[in-house]
Amino acid sequence: MKKSNFIIVLSILLAFIFLVSLGANKNARIAENEINKSNLIGHVHSSNIKFDDEEIFGYADLVAIGKIVEVSEAKYEIQDFHSKQLPYIYKDYFFEITKDLKGDLPQGEVVTVRVPGGEIGKHKFVTDSISPGTTYRQLLYLKEWNPIDDNKVTYTILGGPQGKYELREGKAVGFEKSISEEIFLEKVKGFKEKYGNKVVLPPGVIK
């Protein structure tokens, strides 16, 4: 065999092995056909609504600067998912308010931000929900919401990543933008002057 032909054959063989190896891991798992329904792994994907700065302020129940002072262990509640009853796992983040921008809560007040997701023993619940950061001060746009209905007042971060800004090194750092903290807060204060604590529904939102 000519040297060039040998290289071609060898390369095709390597490419084939490379492609086959991509599926090998999955096939190995498929071969383990042991069903254990008690430890299903839950996944949640959410389609967020797009908000502009004014809309998210208007729709929020509470807009505040603060920091996370405590995070609970993962907790769960059994919920009915049509054909199965499965554990809905979540964590509570305790957010201490240092400056209230909407909602009129006093400085030092601690509110609960409930975030789906977590792991308890063999149960795992993977979500794309945004968790408050635990390192920096942050501004959160919050809406009262409780997936568990345990008679506690809890909040969710509005609009996924759109509802969280970390305040660090003089900047307000959001998911899609990073601007001067001073300019950002001036803008938010402008919305406060315009709307006060009133909840304003964005276009297409009915409640």
């Binding site: 254990n36 329904k37 792994i41 839950g42 389609s47 054909s83 929900s129 759109q162």
Partner: peptide, 22 residues
Amino acid sequence: VPYGVAAATYYWVNPNTGYIEE
């Protein structure tokens, strides 16, 4: 479905098989 979310998909996987069951 929390406020600010249009819809949510929940799916459940058997970790032993990698198959979605629900």
